Computed example of a mutant assay.
Amino acid sequence: MGSKYKPIGDYIQLVDERNKGLKVTSLLGLSISKQFIKSVANTIGTDMENYKIIHKNQFACSTMQVRRDKKMPVALYSEDEPSIISQAYPIFEIINTNELLPEYLMMWFTRSEFDREACFHAVGGVRGSLEWEDFCGMKLPIYSLEKQQEIVKKYKVIQNRIALNNQLITKLEETAQAIYKHWFVDFEFPNENGKPYKSNGGEMVFCRELDKEIPVGWEVKALGNISNCLDNKRRPLSKEERDGKKGVYPYYGAMSILDYVDDYLYDGDYLLFSEDGANIIDENGYPAIQFVWGKFWLNNHSHILDGKGLISIQFLFNALLKTNVLNIVTGAAQPKINQQNMNSIQLLIGSDIVHDKFNQLVKPSYRLIKAYKIQDQKLEELKELLLAKMTKVESEKETL
């Protein structure tokens, strides 16, 4: 390594401040994605005075099970008010922030190469823990404070743009869900005069399946009758097979993108409905679904649906998002929703006119969502490029 590479341990020190007097109540956990999260641990009967206090610009990490998880969880605390965290997590801080910026160090921890090196040093059986001394011995390039500030500034610009895009995506999704609820739950879709249907005397009839009144002409139909299930094209690939097929097309699993491969099975807009796994439903019994598009590969842990006629993917996504499916989950050790049970889900279907107007109203929002997510992908690539450039020991006159 070049002369600018220095051991992490030369720049950090452990901190151990306990929560004496219970002066701090905000309890956090640490995720494998290197973020602080609200703790869901059962703390009944726990001595909270023994928990550690973490302050702004301090780090928390976990050195346990690094080899098993292939990641070292570590996060930079950025809030003004302190929080507490389990005493099992080492907390450390930078000794002199005029030599090393906390944000710069966190960028280094974000790199996949850092996790690979941490995994290499991890010892102790299959799980593999990282010794504190080995962590401190890992090196990073130390530039001048001005260059670190320049690198961090560029990184923050990208991060802030991604955060803004995600806020816009959330707002668009919430708006689409609000429109769905207004039309298909409250029955206030526009009537022939453009006024809310139910509150303006729209005719209602009693529906035995739902045990409530619904608009005249509407009916309950099984998901299998209003959508096309395209599971027959799915094909799982082992990690070894994926390693031999590296490419640009997303490889989806039950919950998210697992990898990228050099070929695709599907091309278009689809709805993915998780088939098996511990998280196929949430605490409310709602299914794990994803709105996906473009060219991609899919394994056999998620069903894939397309709409029929005026029953669009956008409608199905919003309808299923808040549909309780707990009664169709089978299997205790490995929860599962098979294709037959999924197709039996009952959904309320409106008139063709209502569905056509709904599609016209919400489809532009989903086009924007796709555009923002595609932009996020490009921004993530820029982030990776910037992180990769951190390893280049350049002269102080050069810029990243």
Rank of each mutant, 00 (worst) to 15 (best):
E174H: 07
K156F: 12
G45V: 02
I369D: 12
Y260V: 05
G137E: 10
I142P: 03
G217H: 09
F120N: 13
N193P: 00
G350M: 06
K322G: 00
E213I: 00
Y251A: 10
N160A: 12
K357W: 00
Y252R: 06
K357R: 15
L400D: 09
A222N: 15
E203W: 00
K52M: 07
I345F: 05
I280C: 12
S26E: 14
D276Y: 02
H355S: 09
N19L: 08
G9C: 05
K245G: 01
D269Y: 07
K392R: 14
L76R: 09
G294K: 12
F92L: 08
Y270E: 07
S129Q: 00
I169E: 03
I169H: 06
M1P: 06
Q148M: 11
A75D: 01
Q167M: 09
L101V: 08
K308S: 04
I369M: 06
W218K: 03
F120E: 11
V220Q: 08
F206G: 09
G137S: 12
K357Q: 14
E131H: 12
G2C: 11
P196S: 11
F187D: 03
G137C: 04
I313M: 01
Y372E: 11
L145P: 01
K70R: 15
K363T: 15
I214R: 01
I353A: 13
T63P: 02
P73E: 13
Y372S: 10
I32E: 03
L105I: 08
I214M: 07
P236W: 10
W183M: 04
G21Y: 02
P196E: 04
N318K: 06
I158Q: 09
P335K: 04
K246C: 08
S365W: 04
K139W: 02
A163P: 01
L168T: 08
R235K: 15
S86W: 05
D306R: 11
P287D: 02
I179F: 00
K153S: 14
S129T: 06
Q177K: 09
N166H: 11
K147D: 11
P250E: 01
D80G: 05
V216A: 09
W108Y: 15
V216C: 05
G194R: 02
L387I: 11
Y104H: 07
F59E: 05
G125L: 03
Y155E: 06
I345M: 06
L385F: 08
N50F: 00
F184T: 05
L223H: 03
I54H: 03
I353D: 13
G277L: 05
D231N: 15
M64R: 12
S31D: 11
E173R: 11
S26M: 00
K245L: 15
L258A: 06
F317G: 02
S39E: 08
G45L: 07
Y372G: 08
S26G: 00
R68A: 13
A163E: 13
G224E: 10
Y104S: 08
F358Q: 07
F59H: 08
L321R: 13
T330L: 03
N279M: 04
E150N: 10
E380R: 14
L27Q: 10
N193K: 13
S344Q: 12
E384S: 13
P90S: 02
Y77Q: 09
P196I: 05
S62D: 08
N300Q: 14
S302W: 00
M106R: 10
E81S: 15
E49T: 08
Q314F: 11
G247P: 04
